Amino acid sequence: MLETERALEVGPRCRESVLVGVVDVGLLAGLILFGQLSHGLNPIAEPIGALETILPFLIGWIIAAPLAGVYAQAALASPWLGARVTAVGWLAAANVGFVLRSSPAFEGGIAWAFPLVMSGFGLIVLVGWRIGYATAAGD
């Protein structure tokens, strides 16, 4: 097999990273939508508002997670390494999201408690899921 063909080959490890990434994004979107519902907002009635709330954090996650090594094979296989890099990735992503959300590019701004709540619940959801996944998928 040529080197180029090998580089383009999608193996099980790549599929695993994509699957985990899709679940990560789904959990983040679900967390934000749950928050909107708990504040009396209806994401179905106001889909643009829901998207404007989700998008800054997804942008942050797409930037920070790979840089933190969240999708590296070692992080996917080890519950504790996965927890550490996911926590670092989420805290970085959340801060990118807070900066974007408080910018004029996105409507809504940030109340003082929002970073605490979002950082805390994001850590619980993402780190909890990743520990569970790595434990279940471990050898």
Rank of each mutant, 00 (worst) to 15 (best):
V99C: 10
G109V: 12
R13V: 14
E107A: 07
L100S: 08
V85C: 00
A92N: 05
L55K: 01
A68N: 03
A74M: 04
A105Q: 03
V99T: 14
T86K: 02
A29L: 11
A134F: 06
R130M: 05
G128V: 04
A72W: 00
S103P: 07
G122H: 14
L28Y: 08
L2H: 11
G49H: 02
L123I: 15
H39I: 13
G49Q: 04
W112M: 11
G108V: 02
R15V: 10
T4H: 13
E5I: 11
P66D: 06
A74R: 15
A94L: 13
V18Q: 11
R13G: 12
F98N: 15
L67F: 14
A50I: 08
A65W: 02
P66I: 14
S78N: 12
E5R: 14
G97V: 14
L27A: 02
D24N: 07
A93P: 04
I54D: 03
A77D: 15
V88Y: 08
P66K: 12
E5V: 12
G128T: 08
F106W: 03
G30N: 09
P47R: 04
G26I: 05
L33S: 06
A72D: 00
R6F: 03
W90R: 11
E46G: 01
A72N: 09
S17L: 12
R15Q: 14
R6N: 01
F114D: 13
V20Q: 07
P66C: 08
V20I: 13
I63C: 03
V85I: 05
I131P: 08
V85K: 04
L51T: 03
T4A: 15
F121V: 10
V96P: 00
P79F: 09
Y71V: 12
A77H: 10
E9A: 15
E46M: 06
A92E: 05
E52M: 10
P79A: 13
F98G: 10
G60M: 08
A65K: 02
A72M: 01
A7E: 13
G35I: 10
E5P: 02
A64S: 08
V20E: 03
G11P: 07
L51C: 05
T86A: 06
L58N: 04
V10Y: 02
L19N: 09
T135Q: 10
A50H: 01
A45S: 09
L126K: 01
L31T: 10
G21S: 08
G49K: 03
A136H: 04
M1F: 13
P79H: 10
L2C: 07
N95C: 12
E46T: 11
W129H: 14
E46N: 05
S119E: 07
A7I: 02
W80E: 07
Q73I: 00
A7F: 03
I62D: 00
V127E: 09
L33K: 11
L91Y: 12
S38G: 00
V25F: 15
V125K: 02
F114N: 04
I44D: 05
L2M: 08
D24A: 01
G109T: 11
H39Y: 13
L37W: 13
E16V: 14
P12F: 00
A64R: 00
I48Q: 11
A65N: 00
A29M: 14
G108D: 01
G49D: 01
L58S: 02
V125I: 15
S38I: 00
